[in-house]
Structures are given as C-alpha cells and as structure tokens.
Design a protein around this nucleic acid. Sequence first.
DNA 1: GACGCTATTGCGCAAATGTCCAATAAGCCC
DNA 2: GGGCTTATTGGACATTTGCGCAATAGCGTC
Lengths: 210, 210
Amino acid sequence: MARMTPDDRRAAIIAATLAVMQRQGIAATTVRDVAAELDASSGLIHHYMTSMDELIAEAFERAAGADLLATRALVEQGQGPLEQLRFFFDSYSRAGDDFGMQLWLDAWAEAARRPELRQTSQRLNQAWQQLIRSIIEDGVRIGVMNCTDPVAAAWRILSLLDGLHLQEVAHGDSVTSQQVTKWSRHGAEIELGLAEGTLASHPTAPGELT
Amino acid sequence: MARMTPDDRRAAIIAATLAVMQRQGIAATTVRDVAAELDASSGLIHHYMTSMDELIAEAFERAAGADLLATRALVEQGQGPLEQLRFFFDSYSRAGDDFGMQLWLDAWAEAARRPELRQTSQRLNQAWQQLIRSIIEDGVRIGVMNCTDPVAAAWRILSLLDGLHLQEVAHGDSVTSQQVTKWSRHGAEIELGLAEGTLASHPTAPGELT
DNA sequence: GACGCTATTGCGCAAATGTCCAATAAGCCC
DNA sequence: GGGCTTATTGGACATTTGCGCAATAGCGTC
C-alpha cells in the first residue's frame, strides 16, 4: 500500500469504515472488513485508532454530521420559515434513506454500551432538534406558525420523523416511504397550525434529487 | 440439573434469556450466558431451540407481548375512548421503562440481521398501532375526537411515543421521562383536536404504580 | 547513495461464539 | 429391580473477533 501522510490515511480509514458500516451496519463492522475495504492490512487501522470504539464513533460522526450539514445548508436557502421547513423535510427524507437510518438504529441501540458513540449520537440529535426549533421560532415571530412551546414541538416533529422512519427501515412493509413523507409533514402541519398541504414537497426545491 | 418437562424447561429457558437480554442487550446475549443464568449446560439450550435467532425472537416476544397484553387489559377498563386513550398512555409509560425500551431499540436495530426477530417486532408494532387506531375510531364515531385519517394518526401517535422514548433511553438527559409523558400526550391532543390537559395522567387510574 | 524515521505489513494470540455430539443420568413403565 | 426413553451434560470444533508486535519498506535528509 502506498505510504500516505497521517492525516490523509486517517481520513481514508474513516471513509472506508463508513462504507463498511453502511453496507453491514455498525454492529457487524469489523477491523478486517475495514482493512479489506482499504485494501490494506488490519494492523494499519490500529496504528491510527486506539480502539474499535473510537473508529466507529468517529465514522458515525462523520456520516451523520455530513447529513446534518447538508440539511442545514439546504434549509438556509429557504425563503422564510415555511419554505425552510419544507426544505427540511425534503432533505431529511433523503438523509434518512435506508442506509443512513439503519446507522441511526444501530447507534441508538449501541449508545447504552458505547460511551463515545452515545455522546456523538446525543449531540447530533440535539442539533437536529435545534434546527427545527429555530425555524419554528422564526415562524411564530413573523406570525406564519402557531406554537406555544417550540422546544416541545421541535422534539415532537423530530421524534415523529425518527419514529416513522424507524418503522420503514426496520420492518419494511409496515409503513412505506411515501407514507413517512406524507404523514410526517402532515403531523408538522397539525402541530404548527398550518393548512393541509403547506409542507408538501416543493417541486422545485434546489438540490432536489431524482 | 433437575429434569423438567419440556414445557417447563422451555419456559425456564425463555425466562432466563429474557433476564440476560435485559441485563446485556440483545446483541450481547450469548448461549453461554443464558445457560449460566439457568445454571445449566449450553447444550441444553440447543436441545430446545434450533438456533439463536429463534431463542431471541421468542424471548423478545414474551417480554414485549406481555407489555402489549397489559396495556390492552388496562385500556379495556377505560370508560369511553378518552379515558381509554388516557389509560393507554399511563400503561405505555410503564411498559416503556428503561429495560423494556432498550429491548425495543435492540430489536429494531437487530431486525435487519435476524429475520425471526424482525417478524416478531413488526407484528407487535402493528398490534400497538391497531390498538390506538381502534380507540381513535371509537372516539371519532361518538364525536369526542376529531380525525380524518385514523390509520395515519395512530401511526403518528405511536411513532411519536417511540421517538421520544428513544431519546430518553438512548441519551438520558436530552429528554426526561416527565417530558416524554407530557409532550407525547399533548401531541396526541393536538392530533385529535382535544383540549389541552384532556389526556393528562389520570390520578386514580386502576393499576397505577408509584 | 547511505541513513533514519515511521508508515505499513502480516501473522500470531487469546478470548468468545454458535453449533453439534457422544456420553451420562434421571424418571417412568413393566 | 430392569430396561427404555429422553432430558441433560460437558466438551470439541471451526470460526471470528480485537489487538499487539517484530519485521519490512517507503520517503525525506544529509
């Protein structure tokens, strides 16, 4: 294997770990799999990471953190809180695809037993909630949303999204992807006193995929 | 080890598995741990269970199924849909204590890799949703609840509960137990067009703990 | 071109895991 | 009490895991 600078190698290891994690889930990710993905030796991973925990926590943070940044960036392009919330849902459906969501399921379950992973997962979930909360507070301030407790409402909207996605990813045909999209948006409409359809997917959202 | 009838032994194995699962999580439950809990040999477990998957699925079903039955029983004691829904929340907070909920987190995450567990988990989640749905349909029929899509509303209420509990169990101090109770009930009130406080914990609910 | 630093290798080790199987012994019927 | 059924044992086996270590090789410096 070509010799690399420590920074580059570290980044490459995390990227490879991420690929394996997405393919097999956190629990089934092994040092040897990561090494194979890198086409390198297993010893190399331990030369950079002191433990498997550290490796997993760091890779998860990178994956989930990237989703958060992408959503934040898209939200900031929205004109006003309503469009911002619409973009939020657009982006979240994409970030919460099967791969990403299985990662979150693993992280939540493993959080009880992996302290580093737990911290990362908690911090990112709080960041998601704050993103929603600030949109709601803006919406209330300019009078397009109705909400007496933005903190609670933000946790509810986030939890509803996660709970629905969870059913879709864990059980497949209980709840379909379209239902998650439709039901979660409608839930937010009810929560914030919006007319039905207000949060329906914006057909010309910037950065839209498919 | 004393010789037992197959039925009794099978029940004992499942009970022991459950104890280990609660202590260590589903992913970390091993045949040897279960055998040690039983104070029996590891071979005995495979004499009754064809695979580890079956063992785990069956133990999970027993634990989660009991919670469902308990909640159903309590709900049936409610006079009218409003009290029934109140009892539902009372019972769910109890069923969803840290042990029970961590089990669900493990189950959802492991569902992708354990087909039998996946089936069990999916079936039970659907049963929970149907329980809520039937309460809502009754409530709409007699005019005390307002809901145009009981199926979607039931999934939302269940997912909201799961999503909030998830934060509480996985992250501890992001969301407190009281907030889960308060926020999930208020979410259902908004969803069903009920006055705030309608679903607040009933002080004299039968079978109430603590 | 020689030298030194260190990225990289490749194997070995100990522990853990699911599964299987021949041997043992406990209860039941005659 | 003898014999049959089968619950139960206890360990063997192959595999996988995280981790450590001595050896090797790539790259910069003089």
